[in-house]
Nucleic acid binder design. Structure first.
Lengths: 246, 246
DNA sequence: ACAAAAGTGTTTCGACTACACCCATGC
DNA sequence: GCATGGGTGTAGTCGAAACACTTTTGT
């Protein structure tokens, strides 16, 4: 197995696994890019990634290639984004590429190779191939998921104050969010819980902030139905319609 | 171009483009499958699709292969779902497959080839490869999007009564929805509008229903923020934070 | 008149926003 | 005590669910 069985009717293509790795750094959302030394797109910045090898899945491939840039343990979350197949996306020849979204918690600052650097997502340098639009897709996905899931855990340190968490959300969402409401929404949903500890109060004084943590470090949908909720409390214990397991 | 440039470090794989085509038929959501005559999975049912050819994108490939089953014009919507890369997903050799979600409006009944048939999604026959789980993914995606977008247009005829639309939503969501609330939600959001016409009243009498249509036959997000809405009305005309175009 | 089907009025509810106010600390 | 930052109390708003009631047709 692992051998390729292509034919004129069943052509084969090299497949790239790419990662859009995002992290909030000093109040701005950044993406990890490396600078291409060679043509095509010499000098332009590209997403980390590379060829899908014979025995690995795409997910494993992304993780492996990312390991060449940072320790994989720093990744708080990794999910598939989308697959690009434009025959002209690589001028050297056809490749298919699958992009992943990766998130790194803000308290980590992994060492990067020489050619690799963080770039604010709102001020990208010239990008190679279709990687710029992949960053855009990743951004859209992250922002949507911040609203209806608990992905925040992958951007935040294990423990944090609400003010710190607010900074992360503001940076990631790109618009202002109040600490008050952020706290209440996430507590109400059971996404956040207080640790019981307190942070030291700042140099200028002020009430010390309570530390919080995310209840579960696993992706979960916390606001599943924007509308069209299934009929609510059912008095007789029957739930939903028959025929679907849910 | 179109020639493949693989190497040991850059192996190539045949790539499948598959379609999960869904339609509501007699109050149940169905998926289009064809029965495999040959091994592997002889007798099992598979998603329509096939090899990605040299000069086409995945989207074009899906459309082309679907054309072998039905006229493509019947498709109300087509979007990429996810890419599967398990090396063992095809016992004959490694392939990568990208699944698409396709929707056909309920008023159409396209002719199908001999080997192809509609199956209720809640009672699938034995499925080939990983196609069963792809159907599941498509279902999840459709259900989510019914709530926060106007995808309904791709399931419904050009004009319909609220009662008819309700049937479609109930079938697709798998749980009950009241006509009253469905109408109000969709009207409030500006997704639906009355045509001004009326449907003939039923055989048993009853008030004739007003006909409605979807305002736009293009996918649009109608309920973008579940929470973390950006700060509301801004008195000074400035919106959002600077630095992000949105 | 009565049944059937569609649609509206109205109440309730839950979740989020907004903003004023109170609390705890450093100086 | 007072500035600084954190947190709570509470009212307002909005969208949706629930359900009773009215409207319009056929028999």
């Amino acid at each position: 197995m692992g051998s390729v069985w292509s034919s004129p009717e069943r052509p084969a293509y090299p497949h790239q696994a790419l990662a859009v790795v995002l992290q909030v750094r000093v109040r701005r959302l950044h993406v990890m890019l490396w600078e291409r030394p060679n043509e095509p797109f010499a000098g332009a910045w590209a997403l980390p990634g590379g060829p899908l090898l014979a025995e690995e899945t795409l997910g494993a491939s992304v993780a492996r290639q990312l390991a060449a840039k940072v320790e994989v343990e720093v990744l708080g979350h990794l999910e598939q984004l989308e697959t690009r197949s434009d025959p002209g996306r690589d001028p050297r020849g056809r490749t298919v590429a699958t992009a992943y979204l990766g998130l790194i918690p803000a308290h980590l600052d992994p060492a990067l190779p020489e050619d690799t650097a963080w770039h604010p997502v709102d001020a990208l340098p010239p990008t190679a191939f279709d990687h710029g639009s992949m960053v855009r897709s990743a951004l859209d996905r992250l922002r949507a998921k911040l609203s209806y899931t608990n992905v925040g855990f992958a951007l935040a340190p294990p423990e944090f104050t609400i003010a710190e968490l607010r900074e992360l959300y503001v940076a990631a969402l790109g618009y202002d969010v109040t600490a008050t409401n952020l706290q209440r929404v996430l507590l109400r949903r059971g996404v956040l819980e207080p640790t019981g500890e307190q942070a030291a109060s700042g140099r200028a004084g002020g009430r010390p902030a309570a530390l919080h943590r995310f209840v579960t470090p696993e992706l979960a949908v916390t606001d599943p139905f924007a509308v069209f909720r299934p009929p609510s409390r059912d008095p007789d214990g029957q739930s939903r319609s028959p025929g679907y397991e849910g």
